[in-house]
């Protein structure tokens, strides 16, 4: 009996309910719902579905989740943010210092190639055979050699990297706070700017040619 009625267009009714049709299409759907019982029935069923979907409840978000996320938004320490190469540089410094400390604590176990070449290892072996409590002249000479070598390494390291420490120390606490709010490229720019200022003032003399 309803064969002469147009079948309800669910896509159109659905879009009409979502307010996604243009005015002409809206009027058309509205008219058909008023005129044809099948369209009106389809509309009622979709309305019912919307009500059924409203029944879906969800649990509240975890209480500490926002804090966990916001924690990632805290500024990192300036030294870590300053440049990408600060971390490897610091690691290298630690390694150098550890090597130096090891040499200081164990002068007889040095593996320094320079000492090996100069026959110092042979001297060490001779020393081991003598009384270790009182340093002999040979031991004293070797300690002095080690000390001299250690000082030389420290001076080399400071000559290459000490400028960064000097530059970072030249920032006042307020300037450091301000720097922490800047993006990384801006921090780098400020460090280089300060380095140049210190060179102009004569505070810094030797810096690497490129960063």
């Amino acid at each position: 009996m309803n064969n002469s009625f147009p079948q309800p267009d669910l896509e159109k009714i659905s879009a009409w309910m979502d307010g996604e049709l243009d005015p002409a299409q809206e009027r058309e759907v509205q008219q058909r719902i008023e005129e044809y019982p099948q369209w009106a029935q389809a509309y009622r069923e979709l309305q019912g579905l919307e009500k059924a979907l409203d029944l879906w409840e969800i649990p509240a978000a975890s209480h500490d989740l926002a804090d966990k996320i916001i924690k990632h938004n805290k500024p990192k320490p300036l030294l870590l943010r300053a440049t990408k190469w600060v971390a490897p540089l610091a690691t290298a410094a630690v390694v150098v210092l550890m090597v130096l400390a090891f040499q200081q604590g164990n002068p007889r176990r040095t593996t320094n190639r320079g000492l090996a070449k100069s026959g110092a290892i042979q001297k060490q072996q001779q020393i081991r055979q003598t009384d270790r409590r009182v340093p002999t002249v040979a031991q004293q000479r070797m300690l002095l050699e080690n000390y001299s070598r250690r000082m030389q390494l420290q001076q080399q390291w400071l000559a290459q990297n000490g400028w960064l420490i000097a530059v970072l120390r030249s920032f006042t606490p307020d300037e450091v706070k301000q720097l922490q709010t800047f993006p990384q490229n801006e921090v780098n720019k400020r460090i280089i700017q300060r380095r140049d200022e210190l060179i102009e003032k004569g505070v810094l003399k030797r810096v690497p040619s490129r960063l």
């Binding site: 669910l10 896509e11 659905s14 879009a15 979502d18 996604e20 069923e45 979709l46 309305q47 019912g48 579905l49 009500k51 059924a52 979907l53 029944l55």
Partner: peptide, 27 residues
């Protein structure tokens, strides 16, 4: 596209209407 979304939503509603028929007809 928006046309694809229109179709996706319509198909979703047809399926849901069948699945949840008893629920909204009683309301």
């Amino acid at each position: 596209t928006t046309m694809a979304v229109k179709s996706l939503l319509s198909r979703a509603r047809v399926t849901l209407r069948e699945q949840l028929e008893g629920y909204f007809k009683n309301d």
